[in-house]
Amino acid sequence: MYIGCHLSTSKGFKNMGKVALEIGANTFQFFTRNPRGGKARKLDLKDIEGLKKIMEENNFGPLLAHAPYTLNMCSQKEETREFAKMIFADDLERLEQLPCSLYNFHPGSHTGQGADKGIELILEILNDVVKEEHTTTILLEVMAGKGSEVGRTFEELKRIIDGTKYPEKFGVCLDTCHIYSSGYDIVNDLDGVLEEFDEILGLDRLKAIHLNDSKMPFNSNKDRHECIGEGTIGLDAIINIINHPKLKDIPLLLETPNEIEGYAREIKLLKDLKK
């Protein structure tokens, strides 16, 4: 089982690898830059080599880079879309230098224009920025459906992927809190949800899982993460997820409201519950 959590890049990539080992993780997620956007720090090649060594010596799974939350490719505002395009393009180039094969982003909010227009605008940027030579797999995250979010259904994600020039470079990240809040009942019908995903997108597209409990009820369209076993999804459903045969090779990344000590406890708990 590949399991980790979100770690800060403030002390460098090698340090993130060390912290991951200290808390029992064998993968992790990190923001490519400040989660609210802005300029990314210069890459330190020696630091990156230190991380690569840790990963090789400790059988790490794929790392997940996360785009900043401010990245909105389908805003009504042209300047917001241009900012998203610039950040996205820069991130893809930087990731070519990192031992990170996955890059996750929120599709965005159409801000009242409608999902169809939102998808059209997202595709304009993706088809302009993503190049054949890029080696990173780009993941669209399933969203909770609050407000005017695009990507609240498997069908919307399929429309985006199918509309790209290089669909083979795209995958999906499932967030358990998001999909439960958006109306996919992973508590009472996990098999059915996975079958629906497979029929619409194909399970080979599923490359990462954000493993979170939820503070909000089923189908609430609210994005409020909770610690494992303390929310409306509950521990039994989490156990079913981590032990499901179709999900056994998918990296699990915690985004629960925790500090490092809390993540260490959750990782140990999940390892103990893994069959």
Rank of each mutant, 00 (worst) to 15 (best):
A264Q: 15
P68W: 08
E156Q: 15
K11A: 11
N127H: 06
L190F: 05
V130F: 07
A264D: 11
S148C: 12
I228E: 02
P68G: 04
K42Q: 13
I242K: 04
E96G: 12
L51C: 06
T80V: 15
R159G: 03
E196Y: 08
D189R: 08
G112T: 12
I23W: 02
G147E: 09
D223A: 14
R265C: 11
G37N: 08
E259A: 14
E132S: 09
K275V: 12
L235C: 07
P257F: 13
N240K: 15
D213S: 09
F28E: 02
T135A: 12
R36L: 15
C74A: 06
T232S: 10
V187N: 04
T80Y: 13
E124K: 14
E120R: 05
D90A: 13
K274F: 15
K131F: 09
E82W: 06
D204T: 13
E199F: 05
L102Q: 01
G151M: 02
N219V: 05
E141W: 00
K85H: 09
I179E: 02
C173S: 02
D44K: 11
G4H: 02
K52M: 05
C177L: 10
P107V: 08
K215C: 11
V150E: 02
E230Q: 14
G171H: 00
D249S: 15
F218S: 03
R205S: 04
T135I: 11
F83G: 07
K246C: 11
K246T: 12
Y180C: 05
G114W: 09
T135N: 14
L273S: 03
A144W: 02
T27G: 00
V172M: 00
C74K: 01
K169R: 15
T32H: 01
G262F: 14
N243M: 13
Y69H: 04
E22V: 04
I241V: 14
R33F: 05
S10I: 14
F83M: 15
T137V: 13
I209Y: 01
T232F: 13
L123M: 07
F30R: 07
K77N: 15
I23P: 00
I200M: 05
H6M: 06
A237F: 14
M216G: 02
G202F: 04
